[in-house]
């Protein structure tokens, strides 16, 4: 008997769980499990559209610098990266992207308040030890912040934990619990709650679902594999 069969037997007569199990089953039947896709990350195109030409952009956890290189070349941005990994730093230098090797969790960054038009956390927030502090730093340094993250509320993630009883894995979250660098996973709803609780203004939100990028709509906490939010400090309503 699989976890799923056991669970179905166990919850017989309990409508909410039965519904949940049934919904997850139908979603799986309709969409299949999420597939890995080749090519550039889905959010690079979006960020390149969101960031105005000539803006200043600080990318926290910039990785190999691919996004910043694109913003510098295509959008004439003034770009600066921060990353912790030596190999990433070398790749950035080869791309002509300025980057500071620093651990977001351990070291203060010397950037002044409101000194960048945009601060980007591309698939980085869930990897830091102190997400609350890093978001605070983002809102201090940036006039706007762009945060993209894997949505732990996605139905496939939920199905694995609920029906298999295992830590969920997906094309994005492809390392096992014992070795994953994604140590602070959260959902669309969690992130909205944080913004509300800490006075951050949400300017825009986008979903990546079933291979498409679109505006985030109600229900996407279940449907979005990944999400991207444009946020700002409380007094940035005007823009």
């Amino acid at each position: 008997m699989t976890d799923r069969e056991y669970l179905e037997a166990l919850v017989a007569g309990e409508p909410d769980l039965v519904t949940a199990v049934a919904v997850l089953g139908r979603l799986e039947a309709k969409y299949g499990r999420p597939q890995a896709r080749d090519g550039e990350r889905w959010d690079h195109d979006l960020i390149a559209q969101l960031v105005p030409r000539g803006a200043s952009v600080l990318d926290l956890g910039c990785g190999d610098g691919a996004l910043l290189e694109r913003l510098i070349r295509e959008r004439e941005c003034r770009g600066q990266g921060v990353d912790v990994d030596q190999e990433h730093i070398l790749r950035c230098v080869q791309r002509g992207v300025p980057v500071i090797q620093s651990d977001l969790d351990d070291e203060k960054l010397g950037f002044p308040d409101a000194s960048y038009d945009y601060v980007v956390l591309e698939e980085t927030l869930q990897t830091v030890r102190l997400p609350h502090e890093v978001l605070g730093m983002m809102l201090r340094i940036g006039r706007k912040g762009i945060v993209s993250f894997p949505n732990f509320g996605h139905w496939w993630i939920r199905a694995q934990l609920l029906l298999e009883g295992r830590m969920p894995m997906s094309p994005r979250l492809n390392q096992g619990w014992h070795e994953t660098t994604n140590i602070h996973l959260f959902t669309v709803r969690d992130f909205e709650d944080w913004c509300r609780a800490h006075g951050a203004v949400i300017h825009q939100r986008f979903a990546y679902a079933d291979g498409q990028v679109r505006l985030l709509v109600p229900g996407d906490n279940l449907m979005a594999e990944e999400a991207l939010f444009v946020i700002g400090p409380a007094d940035s309503n005007t823009s």
């Binding site: 600066q80 030596q86 980057v99 500071i100 960054l109 010397g110 950037f111």
Partner: peptide, 21 residues
């Protein structure tokens, strides 16, 4: 050395800092 990088960053100058293992 990091202090140098921070001083440049504080002035929004493009800077690369690497701490080579």
């Amino acid at each position: 050395s990091r202090t140098l990088a921070d001083a440049l960053a504080a002035n929004l100058k493009p800077v690369t800092y690497i701490n080579i293992a």
